[in-house]
């Protein structure tokens, strides 16, 4: 059995008196697309941020391939080169064009020469369908376009695994589709992905496995069919179908979501890692 790309063992995170999650175990094999779902505030975003060490866990281990990235003395900057992250708020570099956004990591981190970096950056933008917007600034792009540039930026680094933290939650309904399409294609092309989202349709169609988290625990995980049609827990069934009602196939939902997401309001304390 080949080495999984990501192995999480007994991961624990505590803020003050709150246990965000405790003893989380999770494995992601190469090529897998894992979707994490669950109510707000269950620690899904925090979990993602622990994986690329933007936040530091209080207990447990994380392994990327055969290396323990939570080990003492691990080079965090190096680790982050191999893990791509897409944020809910896109977080594009405002003072750079789309092309330069994608290029930056290549020139500054991978030390590619300018020509090669530019060519590769263009390729990635093409991959997400935005090569004609290469010289636009984030302020000139729609939310969906910005997010696609953000995906290109992360992909340019040739990561082992891509993390998506509620990538469509900040988008207008009409713009969600273009981003999900890019993610779908990415998954099909064999990229290893870990996605936190409320988009049930995406989860059902694209995920290899769905993980349901609540109150800092993994309640259940399994294939989409397993969780939707043969859930082991009543709570799982309840949540999935409620969410599907709101988000599911109705990707152009009518009204604002009732399942308000306060997950993105994680304490900012450790963001300047």
């Amino acid at each position: 059995m080949p080495q999984p790309i990501l192995t999480i063992k007994k991961l624990t995170k505590i803020y003050g008196n709150n246990v965000i999650f405790r003893d989380i175990d999770l494995t992601v094999a190469e090529g897998d697309t894992i979707v994490i779902i669950g109510p707000s505030g269950t620690g899904k975003s925090t979990l993602l941020r622990c994986i690329n060490l933007l936040t530091h866990p209080d207990g447990g281990e994380i392994w990327l391939d055969a290396d323990e990235i939570t080990a003492k003395g691990a080079n965090e900057d190096l680790v982050r080169q191999h893990i791509g992250m897409v944020f809910q708020n896109f977080l594009l570099f405002n003072h750079l064009t789309a092309l330069d956004n994608v290029k930056l990591g290549l020139t500054k981190v991978k030390h590619m020469n300018d020509k090669a970096a530019e060519a590769k950056a263009f390729e990635e933008l093409k991959r997400v369908g935005l090569s004609d917007r290469a010289h636009h600034y984030p302020g000139q792009l729609s939310g969906g376009q910005q997010q696609r540039v953000a995906i290109a930026r992360a992909l340019a680094m040739d990561p082992r695994i891509m993390l998506f933290d509620e990538p469509t939650s900040a988008l207008d309904p009409e713009l969600i589709g273009e981003v999900l399409e890019v993610m779908r294609d990415l998954s099909k092309s064999g990229m290893t992905m870990l996605v936190v989202t409320h988009e049930m349709g995406f989860a059902r169609e694209v995920a290899d496995r769905i993980v349901f988290m609540e109150k800092g625990n993994i309640v259940e995980e399994g294939s989409p069919d397993d969780l939707f049609y043969r859930p082991k827990f009543e709570r799982t069934r309840e949540f999935l179908w409620k969410i599907t009602e709101l988000y599911g196939k109705k990707e152009n939902a009518d009204g604002p979501s009732a399942a308000e997401d306060t997950e993105s309001n994680q304490p900012a304390a450790e963001e300047n890692a």
Binding site: N52, L54, D77, L91, F93, A150, N272
Partner: peptide, 17 residues
């Protein structure tokens, strides 16, 4: 915004970079 720093670190830039 703090997010700019976060996004920069996420692609592997050092703090100084």
């Amino acid at each position: 915004s703090a997010g700019q720093m976060m996004a920069a670190r996420a692609i592997g830039l050092t703090r100084m970079q």
